[in-house]
């Protein structure tokens, strides 16, 4: 990796330059909040955003997507091509880049998912440093830092950006569209102090010791019943999660019933029929068992395969949950016993 310094005032140049070659997507304002949307003008880009309503997973794994078109008569696939336009996602926080890396493990390893891969490979990622908010707990998992998976990462040093360049494309884009200079030891020192201040800004440090083990040891804890009683089974947590990848598959016939499309949609393990088989058996009938499974899979199931927890501490699920269930609270309950 190499580093450059870019003057803050150059930011519009960079965005305009990228927009000349790519579709640029970044955090933009919506109804008092932020979403990842098309950046029409550099002034749309709100790099001061706290978080977005949906994570960037929607750009790679859309809420609803056509997998293939088919013909009924001979059960044949007519079209399963994936068309992905070149684009740049600008302004990702480290939690969200880490979220994509966790999704990559699922979709780009064994049995590669062609839909996800096509979008992922056609997209450049530009990260940007952030400030912690009340619902953030990325510091618990080390996802407050990101070491790979981006093309360029911009750390805000006030009047300038400390630019980490990771890919050839990132280097070319920077070179082509914006004036930058080499880093000095003062820049690096300031980068370190900004990073340290960020780490100190979190309101608490979550104790996550022995978490997978505790999930098994406290599998029958009454805490799950308490959480189950509160859970609305609405699935909001799964939708807004940057790492929830579960989906349902449905066939939709065209009105003439002769052709149709096989589609997939985001699903949630909190829905009652998520684990029900065709002849009636439901392996997770109670709300408590479903709430528990969400955490069991994130902190242990995924970890058992990829050695990382399936959470980046973005806090979106806590914000989205009307019942106020938060992963921080669940982790604390596991560590100390008892739900607050």
């Amino acid at each position: 990796m190499f580093f450059r310094i870019m003057d803050r005032s150059r930011m519009p140049d960079l965005v305009r330059g990228l927009a000349a070659e790519y579709e640029v997507i970044g955090p933009i304002a919506k109804d008092g909040k932020f979403v990842f949307g098309k950046v029409e003008d550099p002034s749309d880009l709100r790099l001061d955003y706290d978080t977005t309503l949906l994570p960037p997973k929607k750009l790679f794994f859309p809420p609803e997507e056509q997998m293939m078109r088919f013909r009924v008569a001979d059960n044949e696939v007519v079209d399963d091509e994936v068309y992905a336009a070149p684009r740049v996602v600008f302004g990702l926080h480290s939690c969200d880049i880490n979220g994509l890396l966790l999704m990559d493990n699922v979709f780009m390893r064994d049995y590669e998912d062609p839909y996800y891969r096509a979008r992922r490979e056609s997209t450049l990622l530009v990260g940007v440093s952030c400030t912690s908010s009340e619902t953030c707990f990325c510091n618990a998992w080390g996802t407050d830092e990101v070491h790979w998976g981006f093309d360029i990462f911009l750390t805000d040093l006030g009047d300038r950006y400390f630019v980490s360049v990771q890919s050839v494309k990132g280097a070319e884009l920077l070179d082509r569209h914006v004036e930058s200079r080499e880093i000095t030891s003062e820049d690096t020192e300031e980068f370190q102090s900004v990073t340290a201040a960020f780490k100190d800004s979190f309101s608490e440090t979550l104790d996550t010791s022995q978490l997978p083990l505790l999930l098994d040891a406290k599998f029958n804890s009454p805490m799950w019943d308490e959480l189950g009683d509160r859970c609305l089974s609405c699935g909001a947590c799964s939708m807004v999660c940057p790492t929830c990848y579960c989906f349902d598959v449905v066939d939709r016939l065209a009105p003439d019933q002769k052709s149709g499309a096989r589609e997939r949609r985001w699903d949630s393990c909190q829905f009652g029929e998520f684990a029900a088989v065709a002849h009636g058996q439901n392996f997770r009938e109670s709300r408590a068992s479903r709430v528990k499974y969400r955490y069991y899979h994130k902190q242990w199931g995924y970890l058992s395969k990829f050695e990382r927890v399936l959470c980046v501490g973005c806090g979106r699920c806590q914000r989205a949950c009307l019942a106020g269930i938060s992963p921080r609270e669940v982790v604390k309950a596991l560590e100390t016993g008892g739900v607050q």
């Binding site: 919506k30 109804d31 008092g32 909040k33 979403v35 309503l53 949906l54 929607k58 809420p63 609803e64 609305l232 089974s233 609405c234 699935g235 909001a236 799964s238 939708m239 807004v240 985001w266 949630s268 909190q270 829905f271 009652g272 029929e273 989205a320 009307l322």
Partner: peptide, 18 residues
Amino acid sequence: PRQPMCFACKTRENVCFF
């Protein structure tokens, strides 16, 4: 569908009325 609709609202990126 048998579940309440908040999940669908989230996919549309609506700000919650509450």
